[in-house]
Every structure is written in C-alpha cells, then in structure tokens.
Nucleic acid binder design. Structure first.
Lengths: 219, 219
DNA sequence: GTCTATACGCGGATAGAC
DNA sequence: GTCTATCCGCGTATAGAC
C-alpha cells in the first residue's frame, strides 16, 4: 500500500482523467478548457500541470488507458488491436476464420468496433475532433481511416486472394466500411434520446455492407 | 456600372472570400485566424469587419454562394438541393426515375454528391469542422447527416414502398450512404498525391452500396 | 473604403506559499 | 501535492486617421 502522498496523487490524477472524459463528451474536446477539467474534478487550476504537460498529453494518456483495458479484455483471444474502426475479440463461427462474407462473422466484427467506440466514446470522439482540427490538408483523416481499419483490409485482401471479387481495392473498401461505422457511432451514440438501438444499427450496417441496397437476390 | 467605391468594395469582399477558401483548405477552418485571411487577401486586418461580422458569418456567405451557383447549375433539371451528401442533377436512365437499385442511376447520384463536394471542398470541409467543433453531444453530426441525405432517404423510402426490402430504415440507410460518401471525400480529396482516382472511388462505392462485399451473386 | 494602432479578454502556463 | 495568484501571448474587435 503506497502511502499518503503517492496515493493521493493517483487519486487526483484519476479524478482529472474522469472529469476530462465527462467534459470531452459534454462540451467536446476542442471546447474543453484546462480550467473546465480541473473545476469539474474539484481541484485547482495549477494541479493539472503537475500531472499532464498539456491537453493533448492527457488525451494520449486516456488513449493508453483505453488500449490497456482493451488488450486485457482481448488477451487470450483472437488477433488485432483495439483500434478505432475495428479490433476484434473472438470471431470464429465455422470452418473459415474471419470470413467477412459470412453474415455472423461480419456482424461480429462490426459489433466489436461499435462496442469499443461505445465504451470509449469520450476518447474516440476526442481523437476524431483532434484529427479534424488538424485541417483537411493534413491528411490525418485518411491516415486515421486506414490505420483504424487494418483488420478489415487484411480480411478483405485474404478474401480477394482467395478469388472472391470485391467492389474495389481492399484498402478502399475497408476504409469505406470503417467510415460508416465510425461516422454513425460519432453521430448516434452521443444523442440523448437515441433514435436507433445498437442492434438495429448493427443489423442495418451488416446487411448493407454484406449485400448492399439491392439485397441478397441481386445477381 | 457601379462606380468606384462600391466596385472596389465588392472586389475586396471577393478577395476576402477567395483568400478564406484557400486558407480553409490549407490550414483548416478552425485554425484559420481572421488575420490569416486578410493577410492572404493582401488587406489590412480591420477591413474584415467592414464586410463580415465574424468568421462564422463569412462561412455562411460562402455557403450561400455555393447554393447560388449550385442552383444555377441545376436550374431546369431534376429536383433536390445542392446539399452536402447529395443534390442531384439530371438522373434518368430508363423507365423508373431515381431507382437506386439501378447501377447507373446509383452511380450518377453518388457522382453528383462527390462532384459537389469536390468543387466546393473548402466550404464543405469548413462546415464539417464547424459541426465537429460543436462537440458530440450537440447532435449536429447526426442532423448534418440526415439533412444532407434527404434525396437518398426519399428514394430509398420510395423503393421500400414499392415492396423492395432494404437493409434497414430508409433514414438510417441513407445516412450510412451519405456518411461513406462525405467521409471519403473529406479524407481523400484534399490529399496531395491522390491514391485513388475519382472514378475508382465512385465505382467502388457504387458496387459496395449496391451489392455489398458479397457481390451480385449472393442470393 | 481602407488603413494603422491599440485595447480588451481569454486561456495557457508558471511561481511560490502552504 | 495542492493551492492561490499572476504573468504572458494571441486573436478579436474597435477607433480614428487617411
């Protein structure tokens, strides 16, 4: 049991992180001032800098926390990291692993991404705001899209290698899939009275991405 | 011909708007300071306020310009406004108007949206930044998504009314379609060395949204 | 109509007491 | 370790000369 000083410091740091998450969600990351965080944590302004060098550094710390608990949750299971657009838990249904043309597996993949974002909405949303604030020409939007969808891309590439025709380049299709997922998450999850349930969204996305608007009997 | 004073004022205003568009694209809307705009326009700082009340007001003016030239371009043609996610020109191919299950028509709809965004990237991107800066809980992301995809939603609803099965609620599916379109536009269009051509992106999106990753012979 | 000069407020960041 | 008090830089917005 670490005594007094260190313990209290960790307590304060946790309070700051917690307050930050709340503020990021309510006011938005960009609009949140250092003083908003310290005030919400019930501490004085100056304390912030005893724990974090800047608001960006704090966000990185929150991101690290998210990975840590994400990795812990995955641990013994499948592959992949708990990234933005994907990050998978256990997803094996029948013979072929990670076959995205199998409805159950596709849905499972989407669900993991959705749940990750749902559980870490303040951090995910903050990262999104940060990327947008970097401006269009920074290229961060595209980078974020491609980095967050490695799993999709890999599975699609495998599919393609197996001879399955895709709508386009695996990277591009994967980015498109990640884009819908994260755009809808960012738009819907924070809403007060949610118009669509998680299941409804996931079912819709699964069917749309699997068979398109034409539906299963297109050929 | 308006004499001297008025003419010069319009010239200055145009210079400010033009400089703003350039700056918004390069630095991003949020990062652009009033002084960046006036400097890029080769004018003094103070002039800005003789023409616009604020940066937000300027953006609204740019948006109005966009609509104006958009409406002019459409004019005698089809329906719809030149909004974010859609806004259509002429799209009739065979019997059924606006049948999104027809590949050519779907592609045409997507193309109009893509081209609108391409042609007005600084404004569209700025609006996006503004919406994101409003924070997650503002609900602006969802509003923007639904408002920008009225055309999609209506066409999907019509399809549904005709007895065609959809992946989900027309509003939700339409939002998803608009989301991919604008997310990819925002991510790809500003890139210096574009990895994918317009046609490549449009073909991929068309096939993905029409038949999904399973492809046409799914049944 | 446009310029230069300046005042104002806000938020980030630090110093030093407790 | 945490607090109070304060400084400083930046960007907005205005006032008044030209």
């Amino acid at each position: 049991m670490g005594t007094a000083r260190k313990e209290k410091a960790e307590q304060t740091q946790a309070a700051l992180k917690d307050a930050a998450r709340r503020q990021f969600l309510e006011r938005g990351y960009l609009n949140t001032k250092i003083t908003d965080i310290t005030a919400a944590a019930g501490r004085a302004t100056g304390v912030f800098y005893d724990h974090f060098a800047s608001k960006e550094a704090l966000l990185q710390a929150l991101l690290a926390d998210m990975y840590e608990q994400g990795d812990a949750a995955i641990a013994a299971h499948g592959h992949g990291a708990a990234g933005d657009g994907d990050g998978n838990g256990e997803v094996e249904v029948d013979g072929r692993d990670h076959d995205l043309t199998d409805r159950a597996q596709l849905r499972a993949h989407l669900a993991v991404g959705w749940q990750t974002m749902s559980a870490n909405l303040p951090v995910v949303a903050a990262l999104h705001e940060e990327a947008v604030a970097a401006g269009p020409s920074s290229g961060r939007a595209w980078r974020q899209l491609t980095e967050g969808t490695e799993a999709f891309r890999d599975h699609l590439a495998a599919l393609s290698a197996r001879g399955h025709g895709l709508p386009g380049a695996p990277e591009l299709v994967g980015a498109a899939m990640g884009a819908v997922l994260s755009a809808l998450a960012y738009a819907l999850l924070p809403l007060p009275g949610r118009p669509y349930s998680d299941d409804e969204v996931l079912d819709t996305l699964t069917d749309l991405l699997l068979n398109g608007i034409a539906g299963p009997d297109a050929g």
